[in-house]
Design a binder for these strands. Sequence first.
DNA 1: CGGAAGATATTGTCGGACAATCCGGCGTGA
DNA 2: TCACGCCGGATTGTCCGACAATATCTTCCG
Lengths: 231, 231
Amino acid sequence: MAKVGKGVAPRASAVSTSDQVVTRIVRGLYEGQYVAGQKLVEADLTQRFGVGRSTVREAFKRLEAEGLIAVSLHKGASIRSLSRSDARDILEVVETLTGLSARLAAERLSRPGEKKMLRDVMSALKTLAANDSFEFGRQRGRFYLLLAQIAGNRELVRLLPMVQVHLVRAQFRTTSGLEARRQLIEDYEQVVAAIVANRGVQAERAMKRHIRNTARTIQRLPDGFFAPSAE
Amino acid sequence: MAKVGKGVAPRASAVSTSDQVVTRIVRGLYEGQYVAGQKLVEADLTQRFGVGRSTVREAFKRLEAEGLIAVSLHKGASIRSLSRSDARDILEVVETLTGLSARLAAERLSRPGEKKMLRDVMSALKTLAANDSFEFGRQRGRFYLLLAQIAGNRELVRLLPMVQVHLVRAQFRTTSGLEARRQLIEDYEQVVAAIVANRGVQAERAMKRHIRNTARTIQRLPDGFFAPSAE
DNA sequence: CGGAAGATATTGTCGGACAATCCGGCGTGA
DNA sequence: TCACGCCGGATTGTCCGACAATATCTTCCG
């Protein structure tokens, strides 16, 4: 064991530079800084972030594996843009994964702090609903992550953020009006109520219903919102 | 990984060198060439594969995002080894995803060639059951991929191979005796039967039951097969 | 025998180099 | 005018070497 010496500095640098690049790009996505389909030029990012090209390329590899960007040989990286069927496919998967999350969370809710965390996230959502769109999106992501954590399934924690809720959100963020947010919070309330009552099946059903409603709303959008179908 | 689509394959060279490295490492996993927990040293792989270090590092990034290896800062990459709860978590997720796959495949089975493909994969599995363990595993992966394709959900096609069935298989391959393979084929037969009969719910139930059985078998293994729990 | 100081190995990141490939513009011919 | 093919710049894919930061091994001393 290494000499611990004085006050252990909070290891802020437990993240590699390429991870930081990933974070910054994802944040840019959330902030609407990138448009679906937009190209990401290596030289551009190396300069903007002040890092080497290898670092940017490693970040690209990870973002590609996570489905946030598309990289084609000799043509470079671009923000992935979804066709109508892509959106449908993704939301079908999200439906089952978040459903599983909700069910397991209800079945395994045990530690006392967890109920409080749920309440906190919900109240934060309510506060933000009228305000900033960006922070509301972040908080929403935190809600899903919290469910996965309460569910006690690390694979869900790993997979859920990777499932491109980012992207769906980024591409269709413009549509989430104030009324939609009220509906969303109402849906979440039902899910949370079922979870704290340890009713797994009910929580799963409520969550799936919510995702299906979201999917229906998105599918009603005109073609202009989607990339041309790849089939 | 790819190479399953239509007959026309004009993109023979649509793979970058780092993708080839990924493929070779995954193949090595299937072949039992790597042990869970084993370290992957960059210099070693650069020499063995005759590629540059950046290429190997990019391959690592992707393998890490897919959950096949674990990379920690300044300590390098190693084949991910699963604790008992990791295995449980992964199989819970696999259960819902393959269940969804089976249900959608049953609901959307339409093109006539698909029934034939299902039959072909099944007969190939039966042929291989008594023989090579490696090829059997490959064919098994092809079965799941085929279901996702028939389901017509590209996100499933993208996610399923990433869900580390590889790893579960690599780590617990030794346990899959001949009797287990017969049982597996029987389970698959039921799934296929439900799919060609367009009975979605039934197909999903059969598939989930199969995965649960697999999980139960794995959980019965002694502690020595697992990495020490990370909680 | 334990543990600390030093030596060695490995990784993280940068910068440069070069070939392969893509893309946009230009000229030519119909 | 339009189609087509060629050309040159821009961008990517990959390799190499360099160096600092960190981890791991070795050795020596009390």
